[in-house]
Amino acid sequence: MTLSTGKVAKLAGVNVETLRFYEREGILPEPPRRASGYREYPPETVELIHFIKRSQELGFSLKEVKELLSLRKVPRRASKKATTLVDAKLAEIDLKLRDLRSMREALESLRCACASNGSSSACPIIESLSGRSESEEPG
């Protein structure tokens, strides 16, 4: 049994253009076509798309997804390589979290400066984002 493009897209929860994109990127193998030119996907394509989407939800790039997919073909090497990919992704996420914490602290500081600014001078938030200090006058 084969599935049409529309059926695969519906079952996998993606749109038809996503399937075509995955094919162009080499993530999804191009399926055979009927005499009419319509694509005929094997049923396991739906599971493959779920794998791709879940990997992306966890932060893996399409390049990394390709690598993860290739590991499915070499089970005895898969675990070590998959662990390496996950470790790299965790390190990347940790770095992003540090950056986000820094950004949050900077914004909190700006918010506090604005709240405590009882004068009629310019808003400290706007001044900070403009790259000018309070003592600088536009000129």
Rank of each mutant, 00 (worst) to 15 (best):
M1H: 13
M1D: 11
T2C: 04
T2Y: 15
G6L: 10
G6A: 03
K7V: 12
K7H: 12
K7D: 09
V8Y: 10
A9G: 01
A9R: 00
A9L: 02
A9E: 01
L11Y: 12
A12S: 08
A12L: 05
V14I: 08
E17Q: 10
E17A: 07
E17P: 06
T18P: 13
L19N: 01
L19W: 04
R20C: 03
Y22R: 07
E25V: 09
G26M: 01
I27R: 02
I27Y: 00
I27Q: 01
P29R: 04
P29F: 01
P29K: 03
P29V: 04
E30V: 10
E30M: 08
P31K: 02
P32S: 09
R33L: 06
R34K: 14
R34W: 15
R34A: 10
A35V: 13
Y38Q: 09
R39Q: 05
E40P: 00
Y41D: 04
P43W: 04
E44A: 07
V46Y: 13
L48T: 10
I49W: 03
F51I: 00
F51R: 01
R54P: 10
E57R: 08
G59P: 15
G59C: 03
G59D: 06
F60E: 03
F60S: 06
F60Y: 04
S61W: 05
L62N: 08
K63H: 08
E64A: 13
E67Y: 08
L71A: 03
V74M: 09
V74N: 12
P75N: 03
P75M: 03
P75I: 02
R77E: 15
R77Q: 13
R77G: 05
A78G: 09
S79M: 10
S79T: 12
K81C: 00
A82E: 08
A82H: 06
T83V: 12
L85M: 07
V86T: 10
D87G: 03
D87W: 01
A88I: 02
K89Q: 14
K89L: 07
K89T: 02
E92V: 03
E92L: 11
E92Y: 13
I93H: 12
D94E: 15
D94S: 10
L95M: 11
L95R: 15
L95W: 15
R98W: 11
R98S: 14
R101Q: 11
E105W: 09
E105H: 09
A106W: 01
L107Q: 06
E108T: 09
S109M: 11
L110N: 07
R111T: 12
C112F: 15
C112Q: 15
C112K: 15
A113M: 09
C114R: 02
C114S: 09
C114H: 05
A115V: 10
A115K: 12
S116N: 13
N117W: 01
G118D: 06
S119G: 13
S119H: 02
S119E: 04
S120N: 14
S121N: 09
C123D: 02
P124H: 04
I126W: 02
I126P: 06
E127Q: 12
E127N: 14
S128I: 02
L129T: 04
L129D: 07
L129R: 03
L129S: 05
G131V: 05
G131S: 05
S133Y: 00
E134H: 12
E137G: 06
P138A: 12
P138W: 00
P138R: 08
P138E: 11
G139R: 12
G139D: 11
